[in-house]
Design a protein around this nucleic acid. Structure first.
Lengths: 328, 328
DNA sequence: CTGTTAGCGCCTTCAC
DNA sequence: GTGAAGGCGCTAACAG
């Protein structure tokens, strides 16, 4: 590997001068600058970022911990993060947990060892152990998607979005509304969205049958199964269903289609996510857009402003908007 | 930051002993080992990967250059890469080009500077400049999706997949088949898939009207526009269309639906991609599954075997399979 | 404007 | 079994 020393020799200057030229810090004569540039161009020399980081303590790398990259939500968030970071010359080091909570903690350590300049955590839970580990960190961290006390959070407004969506269904005349959720350990998606639904139902004095509430994981098939459960076990069949993610809704749709249950006539469907595909399924889905890319961008922005300074505690709650389509 | 020196002092041993304990290289007495472990547990010390890399020349990081992360194809590839790499303790450093060819080259340099142990390039073109840059690399690199002479390639069988899909449409009785492609600079998706289509048509002595061949970019809307063009400008309307990606097909579907043109009766649609959603659109899409996750895994596997050894030149052509659904 | 020097934190001989 | 010493490639005073 080519080092600064060899470049210096070839250009007949000292290493410091090359370094100065490289970082354009301090004075370098035009003459020297030219010779150095020439040598670099000829050799294709690239200074070792590791040696640099070792000296400067900065890496220009941000660690991104996420539960999976196989969802549109995640990729949009990452795209948003990247968009913001790349303008400042930062890169992303991926840490994919595959929904394994232990790995979440492990990766915090690994990223610390790699001395990333900051971490963005796309969280699915608010485990105390994780929280504790994070609080011990000296580098800035931003949490997306779950509220963690005392940290910088970029949050979706799960509770209100959920209430609004439920309210919309009620407005449309529905009284019997089913709910397809996920595990409540995921406080944002599991707990808050369910609470929003329940509270809105209660506010309208509408009762909820136990069979109407089903739980899936984050995939299409479990949405299908949930709707199957709802449809086959409900004494009193609901006329609408609220799924906490588009995928769950799409699964539900697929069950209904196969059983010739018409949407929205016999069963209306609404969800949260606004995935690209939500408008191309049959019928197009009424859904809430969370603007995930913006979330990523915002998180990256917050992180960058916190690098080098003491992290301000901050809670950023993002906007959402209801997209009304034919499924309701 | 905590360093090995401080750990050594706290454990009453020398830095070398700590280092040995950390890497379990050489002999360390049980006694010393225990003290060191205790101190590390108490302090949460994590050795600096940069200092390590500077010495050992290995980073346990792989650079992944991709055109975008906002497609299912990309995220599946990355997921596959990650699955394989993480078993060996490697991590991914992302380099997103946003389809900017200049950045592709730039990122090769950047990753080199970061001294990644290897690079996986998800390629969209075979630009000579890029090729030249790559050939100058001393670290292993694996190319996914485009054939580049003299390198390790993981390829989809675009030409044959395309012929087979066209052949399938012909078998189903179609004689007038339209084609929605992309720019041919993308040799795999643009050129080869088109060639497969054309050759198969010719092999069956079927003629192609110019208006049947349209071009889009990689999004849904351009598929819609392409079908619009086909439908409105064809003198002799086709009875089927082959779109080179699922998204393009979904766009086409959406146009047809809005214009009450029934699928597959008036117009059959088939495509390549087998995206998760392809089975939930209306009607479900006949498509070819390329197994992108496997591509990523395979690429990562090849890369890992090439680290440390002289890279064998290799061409791995992946399997595909036709998924027949109601759109044809 | 330029060169000398001293580490950054770690691993790795080489003695002991 | 363990420690001392040197150096990976770079930057940042400091002296000229």
């Amino acid at each position: 590997m080519l080092t600064i020393k060899e470049i210096a020799e070839m250009a007949n200057v000292s290493r410091s001068t090359v370094s100065r030229a490289l970082n354009n810090s301090g004075y370098v004569s035009e003459d020297a600058m030219e010779r150095i540039k020439k040598v670099i161009a000829e050799t294709g020399y690239a200074p070792s970022e590791h040696a640099k980081s070792l000296r400067t303590k900065r890496t220009k790398v941000i660690g991104v911990i996420l539960p999976t990259i196989q969802t549109e939500t995640s990729s949009k968030i990452v795209a948003g993060i990247d968009k913001e970071l790349s303008t400042q010359g930062y890169q992303i080091l991926l840490a994919n947990t595959n929904l394994d909570k232990a790995k979440e903690i492990e990766y915090v350590d690994l990223l610390k060892a790699r001395q990333v300049d900051g971490i963005i955590l796309v969280a699915t839970n608010t485990d105390p152990l994780l929280l504790k580990k994070i609080k011990g960190l000296t580098i800035p961290i931003v949490i997306i998607g779950q509220e963690m006390e005392g940290l910088v959070n970029v949050l979706y407004d799960d509770y209100h979005a959920s209430r609004e969506l439920t309210s919309f269904l009620i407005e449309k005349g529905h009284r019997k509304i089913a709910f397809i959720g996920v595990d409540e350990e995921d406080r944002a998606v599991g707990f808050l969205r369910k609470k929003g639904y329940k509270d809105e139902m209660i506010a309208h004095k509408l009762s909820i049958e136990p069979a109407w509430i089903q739980k899936g994981i984050f995939d299409i098939d479990s949405g299908r199964q949930a709707m199957d459960q709802i449809w086959t076990t409900s004494q009193n069949k609901p006329t609408a269903a609220f799924a906490v993610t588009d995928r769950l809704a799409i699964g539900a749709l697929s069950f209904l289609k196969d059983h010739k249950i018409s949407v929205p006539e016999q069963m209306a469907i609404a969800s949260i996510g606004a995935s690209e595909i939500s408008q191309y399924v049959d019928p197009p889905l009424t859904t809430i857009d969370y603007q995930n890319e913006k979330a990523g961008k915002e998180a990256a922005h917050q992180l960058l402003t916190n690098i080098g300074t003491k992290a301000a505690i901050k809670k950023i709650i993002l906007d959402y908007r209801l997209i009304i389509r034919d499924s309701v």
